[in-house]
């Protein structure tokens, strides 16, 4: 589905360059739930931005369905995001001027809106458990509700891939568990997920897990919390040292 080869992003700061992402290789197959761990500032989000065509790489290639997105026009990359990729941000990313239902319908403006989109939005809100808040404005929602709405919005155009950038970063443990269960359910239903997080306790949810450090994918998660993980529950963890 997605093939990443030698992906590099450097930012120029005054007289020196910082490599946010350094020569990353990654393959995402349909139906996978990929977790990328790492500390803040290790380049996880920059990697996601490049996967979605939102950040232009300094070097390397991102192929989606075999097509190098660097060769696509802005309209085509935008179209790809609208149809194939659903986004969930660390913060809710809901527009404060729109109701919950309108927020969920927002991505249909960039795709093909049909009368069934409204019904689908309501179904998704029901699925994520916030149907009763359909007419509410985002500022009246709890953090967990906002996240659920953001997930419903990411799914409205039926994307093949869901990209989630630390979606549970600002949630309490119980809400985090609920949201991760929702992601697991979506993955079981066939949605491919790529998620970045700094919480190694989430390893069991992934079908593939990677650890990033200083812009490179260096292998499996290796934090103090990681040492306490029940390895039986993460038997599907794949360690890949790509450096």
């Amino acid at each position: 589905m997605i093939n990443v080869d030698g992906l590099t992003k450097t930012f120029r700061m005054d007289n020196y360059e910082i490599s946010a992402v350094d020569d990353v290789q990654l393959n995402v197959q349909p139906g996978e739930f990929i977790l990328i761990f790492g500390r803040s500032g290790c380049g996880k989000s920059t990697l996601l931005g490049m996967l979605a065509g939102l950040i232009r790489p300094t070097k390397g290639v991102v192929r989606v369905h075999g097509v190098d997105i660097a060769h696509l026009s802005d309209d085509d990359v935008s179209g790809l995001r609208a149809k194939e990729i659903g986004f969930v941000f660390q913060f809710s990313g809901l527009l404060s001027t729109l109701t919950v239902l309108e927020n969920v319908l927002l991505p249909t403006l960039f795709c093909t809106y049909s009368p069934s989109s409204g019904l689908r939005a309501l179904e998704l809100l029901e699925k994520v458990g916030v149907l009763d808040r359909a007419d509410a404005y985002p500022h009246t929602l709890s953090s967990g509700e906002m996240k659920r709405v953001a997930i419903a919005r990411a799914l409205i155009n039926g994307p093949a891939l869901l990209i989630a950038d630390e979606p549970t970063g600002d949630l309490d443990v119980d809400t985090e568990f609920e949201i991760m269960e929702l992601f697991r359910q979506l993955n079981h239903e066939g949605t491919t997920i790529v998620m970045v997080t700094h919480n190694p306790d989430l390893v069991p949810y992934g079908t593939q897990s990677y650890y990033m450090e200083r812009g490179k994918i260096v292998g499996k998660p290796k934090t103090s919390s990681c040492e306490n993980l029940d390895l039986k529950s993460v038997s599907h963890l794949t360690t890949r040292d790509l450096t």
Partner: peptide, 15 residues
């Protein structure tokens, strides 16, 4: 930020 979210959701520059 709002415009960036629109872009991330699939809005083109023209939109």
């Amino acid at each position: 930020k709002e415009v960036s979210i629109l872009r991330a959701l699939g809005a083109t520059k023209a939109f």
